[in-house]
């Protein structure tokens, strides 16, 4: 049996918001029964439209928000029934790399004392050991150690992102959740940071949870892919397989702008309605129902279950039908 460093089971996350004239409480489901398993050294990429719950999932896993229901297991420690101390211990093993280093680094604190604080409160190291650890980590991410005396705004964007990575890896975690780590960077810097992430994974065996909108980067990085739509897993499975032939119409629609990325171009689906309407949100049906070209009545009535086909799991009532169609398409 494979050993998983991170296991999440049926995670649900609901937000309460007040809306309307009467300020009634309404529940918004940000995550709906999301389960995932992450083995050591593996990369799981999460893709989806905006507001699909990608970032929420990341934040729930690193412990910056608590799930409404569901259980998380980090390195064998089950979090929900663990004591506060144990939970803190476990959360050290899963760390977040923030999207925008401009905002996640405190503008008024020097890099060094920022990293030092992180170490002081999470490890028993003394001042000298901490200093050595900081130097070592900075070297690992490729930042000259004299830059540690600076404030974040004195660094280039690339160096700032490296510091954000250093801050995440300095506690020697097992899992890194990277929420759009490359989105705000220039092209040449993106490649530098991507290479750094790959190098770190190679050398230190991190598992990544890679949240991104850049499908090219996802294809490059990921072993596994999870496709989210309105907090629900639509498709999940091996990256190569998924990029070769996406099954779910939603995944196909996601890839539609990037035909060069996927194996067979007939897999592209052009969705009916191009935009998600702001008002109509299906309560019990498939979240993609209103836009799906294959949708029928059954899609409106019930949420499809994740079903496994080989190494890809798809949540769609119409899988067989669609597969038959593309089979036909390929023949002629």
């Amino acid at each position: 049996m494979t050993y998983y460093v991170l296991e999440a089971d049926n995670i649900n996350k609901e937000y309460l918001t007040k809306s309307g004239v009467l300020r009634m409480d309404t529940r918004i489901k940000a995550l709906n029964n999301v389960s995932l398993k992450l083995a050591r050294g593996q990369t799981l990429a999460i893709i989806g439209e905006s507001n699909s719950g990608k970032s929420t999932l990341g934040r729930v896993l690193v412990g910056s928000e608590t799930p409404s229901t569901g259980s998380i297991r980090i390195d064998g420690t089950k979090l929900d029934d663990a004591s506060t101390r144990l939970r803190r211990e476990a959360h050290r093993k899963i760390r977040l790399i923030f999207q925008n280093a401009n905002q996640s680094l405190n503008p008024r604190i020097r890099i060094k004392s920022l990293l030092d604080d992180t170490l002081r409160f999470n490890t028993p190291l003394n001042a000298e050991q901490r200093d050595a650890k900081i130097k070592e980590t900075l070297k690992l991410v490729g930042v000259r150690s004299e830059l540690a005396e600076r404030y974040p705004h004195m660094l280039s964007m690339g160096d700032r992102q490296r510091i954000a990575i250093a801050r995440a890896i300095i506690l020697e975690p097992l899992v890194l959740v990277a929420d759009e780590p490359l989105a705000h960077l220039d092209m040449s810097i993106q490649a530098q940071i991507l290479n750094l992430l790959l190098k770190l994974q190679e050398e230190l065996g991190f598992s990544y949870l890679f949240i991104s909108n850049d499908l090219g980067m996802v294809k490059h990085m990921a072993d596994e892919i999870m496709v989210l739509c309105d907090g629900q897993v639509m498709e999940q499975g091996n990256s190569r397989r998924l990029f070769h032939l996406p099954n779910h119409p939603y995944t196909r629609a996601l890839f539609s702008g990037h035909p060069s990325l996927i194996g067979s171009s007939d897999a592209i689906v052009h969705v009916k309605k191009l935009y998600k309407s702001a008002t109509s949100k299906t309560e019990k049906g498939c979240p993609f129902y209103s836009r799906c070209p294959f949708a029928s009545q059954s899609c409106e009535k019930s949420i499809p279950e994740l079903e496994y086909h080989d190494d890809v799991a798809v949540a769609c009532h119409k899988t067989n039908e669609i597969n038959a169609l593309s089979e036909l398409h390929r023949k002629y």
Binding site: A191, K199, H220, M221, R240, S260
Partner: peptide, 24 residues
């Protein structure tokens, strides 16, 4: 620039380091 964008590679570069310009 073209070499640093993964979606623009001709051959399979999965998880191989990309070409990156030095410096900023």
């Amino acid at each position: 620039l073209m070499d640093s964008v993964p979606s623009h590679q001709h051959n399979d570069m999965h998880r191989k380091p990309l070409f990156a310009l030095k410096g900023v």
